[in-house]
Structure formats: structure tokens, C-alpha cells
């Protein structure tokens, strides 16, 4: 039987707990309230992490099939623009505008999978192209302006009784739970793992490899678009250059959460935990005096250290 700490999600969770413990200790105030360990800050971390975390679920799924999705940042940005356009310019309801925003993700997913499955482009190239086009579309629509959603959004509003601040993290947790079950307990998930493990074998086993890949990219697109809607609401803006470069942080979240870039291995729950690990770093590092110029370096080192530690643990577990 596997030891508990060898279960991937558990070891990622342990890293997160250690990280929080470290910053709690390091930033312990000599007097007054704790700058890091308080409800307001926790909520802030959760809120911003969910933008990465929701998209990281999709990134993990795509990576497990043996592919990669570089378009998530662009999808998030364009979704904020489209949502903003319909909400502010066309004066639609927020729900209807958000649904239009989701179309951005759906279209990106369909385009990527058409290029990859139909045209047989490598996923890196296909999604790189989609990333450029979808990002560019945002600039064309906004012409360097931005949509100010905050003016029209109600203050202190609630969604089914939950304060809006708590909605993004709850959405992230609900999606992570749903996809974790889909990946582990349903045929669809098994097919995703099989395609990533050995594509030829999957084909010979009668799996519809093209269809499986298409569902993976469309899911990733839709999840990135949900992140985009969340960002638009949290930030109160629809702007073409939002979430610039997020795709790499999103992929890094999935990898830190135990997803192997060679495909066939990984977990969506781990990806969300990975996003939280980065969320905490992004929040806590600026609070350390003098660390301002080092935070990118530290984040980079963290990725390497965590993945190396993970590989050592995996090897131990196998021996």
C-alpha cells in the first residue's frame, strides 16, 4: 500500500502548509495584528489564486493528454474584454455577459484542437498561434480602451447568500472537486490518462483519440474563460492586456501540483494546490522588507525545488 505522504495531492498539500507556517513565523509581528495571517489576507490570496487555479485545472488535463496549452492567459484576457463589452457597452446582464465570455474559451479550445487533431500541428505551436490571435483580438476590440465593470457592479453584493469575495474560491474548489472525480472515476478521465500514457496503444485499444484530445482542449479553454470572468469581476475591468504571461504561471501550478509534462500523470486537485502555493508566495514575498527585487528569483527557485523534491519522493516510492 502507498504511504499517505506518497499520495501526490497530500505531499503538495504538505508543501502548502509548510509554506504558510514559514511565512507566519517569518512575518510574525513584534506588535499588533499579523500582516500575513489574518482573514482579510487569506481571502485576498484565495481570491487571486482562484484565477490561476481554475485555469490550472484545464492546464493539468491538457498536459496529462501529453499536450500543452499556451493560450490560457490570452483567453483570460479576451474573456474579460468580451464580458466587459457586453456588460458595459451592450448593457446586458452580468450572467448573459459572462456566458458570452465563455464563448471565448470555447472557441479557443475548438480552434486549438482543430489545429492539433485535424491539422496535426504540435500542441505547442497550435496553442502559441491561438494565444497570439486571441490576445490580439482583445486589442482590436478595445482599441486601447478598457471596460469599467466596477461602476456597474453593485457594491457588497451576494450570490445566493454568499458574499462576492468568497465566490471565486468556492467556484475553484467546486470545479476542482468535480474534475477530480471526473478524472479518477469516469471513463473520460481514464481516456485522458490513456492517451497521455501511450497514444498508439490508445488508438489500438479503440479509444477515439481525436475526440478525447478535443474535449481536453475545449475543457481547458472553458476553464480559462471562467478564470477570465472571475478576473473581470474581481478587478472590475475588461482590458486586453490583463493576465499577460499568466499561461506560464498556470502551467507551473499544474507541474508543481504533480502533473508530468511528458503526459500520462497528474492531478487537477494538485494543480489547484499548486496555484495556491504560488498565490501565497506572490502575497507574502512583497511583505518581506528588501525582498522586492528578489521575488521573481524566489518564485523560479521554488518551482525547481518543489519539482525536484517531488521526483525524489516518487523515486523513493517506487523503489
Amino acid at each position: 500500500m502507498k504511504q499517505l505522504w506518497q499520495v501526490r495531492e497530500v505531499s503538495t498539500l504538505m508543501i502548502l502548509v509548510l509554506e504558510v507556517a514559514f511565512f507566519t513565523w517569518y512575518l510574525w509581528p513584534s506588535d499588533g495584528g499579523h500582516p500575513f495571517l489574518n482573514v482579510g489576507n487569506a481571502l485576498l490570496i484565495l481570491k487571486y489564486s482562484s484565477i490561476y487555479g481554475i485555469a490550472a485545472i484545464g492546464a493539468a488535463i491538457v498536459i496529462i493528454t501529453g499536450g500543452i496549452d499556451l493560450s490560457s492567459g490570452a483567453v483570460i484576457g479576451l474573456t474579460s474584454v468580451v464580458t466587459g463589452y457586453f456588460f458595459v457597452q451592450a448593457d446586458w446582464s452580468l450572467t448573459a455577459s459572462a456566458l458570452m465570455g465563455l464563448m471565448v474559451g470555447l472557441s479557443a479550445g475548438l480552434a486549438s484542437s482543430w489545429l492539433i487533431v485535424g491539422m496535426r500541428l504540435p500542441p505547442f505551436i497550435a496553442t502559441l498561434g491561438v494565444m497570439g490571435i486571441w490576445r490580439g483580438a482583445g486589442y482590436i476590440i478595445t482599441e486601447a480602451r478598457f471596460y469599467d465593470l466596477s461602476a456597474k457592479l453593485p457594491r457588497n453584493w451576494t450570490v445566493v447568500g454568499v458574499s462576492i469575495d468568497w465566490v471565486p474560491p468556492l467556484v475553484m474548489v467546486a470545479l476542482a472537486g468535480t474534475f477530480q472525480v471526473l478524472m479518477k472515476r469516469f471513463q473520460w478521465g481514464r481516456a485522458i490518462f490513456a492517451v497521455g500514457g501511450n497514444e498508439t496503444a490508445a488508438l489500438f485499444s479503440g479509444l477515439r483519440v481525436g475526440l478525447v484530445k478535443t474535449t481536453a482542449y475545449v475543457t481547458a479553454g472553458l476553464l480559462a474563460a471562467i478564470s477570465g470572468v472571475v478576473l473581470a469581476v474581481v478587478q472590475g475591468q475588461g482590458k486586453a492586456d490583463l493576465a499577460n504571461g499568466y499561461e506560464l504561471d498556470i502551467i507551473a501550478s499544474a507541474v508543481v501540483g504533480g502533473t508530468s509534462l511528458t503526459g500520462g500523470r497528474g492531478s487537477v486537485a494538485g494543480a489547484v494546490l499548486g496555484a495556491l502555493i504560488f498565490g501565497v508566495l506572490r502575497n507574502a514575498l512583497p511583505q518581506i522588507p528588501g525582498a522586492t527585487f528578489y521575488d521573481r528569483v524566489i518564485v523560479g527557485l521554488a518551482v525547481i525545488v518543489i519539482v525536484v523534491m517531488d521526483q525524489i519522493m516518487v523515486r523513493r516510492g517506487e523503489a
Binding site: 490518462f193 490513456a194 498508439t200 496503444a201 490508445a202 489500438f204 479503440g206
Partner: peptide, 21 residues
């Protein structure tokens, strides 16, 4: 060619694509 899924269990290999649900 003996096509297997190295990342899956023996059971998952046997039922790949035709799982019992």
C-alpha cells in the same frame, strides 16, 4: 508490438477504452 500504458495499473490497461461502469 505489445502496446501498454506504462502510467496505468494492470487493471486499467486491460480495460482501457472499454471500462466497466
Amino acid at each position: 508490438e505489445m502496446l501498454a500504458f506504462p502510467n496505468l495499473s494492470v487493471t486499467a490497461n486491460i480495460f482501457a477504452g472499454r471500462e466497466i461502469t
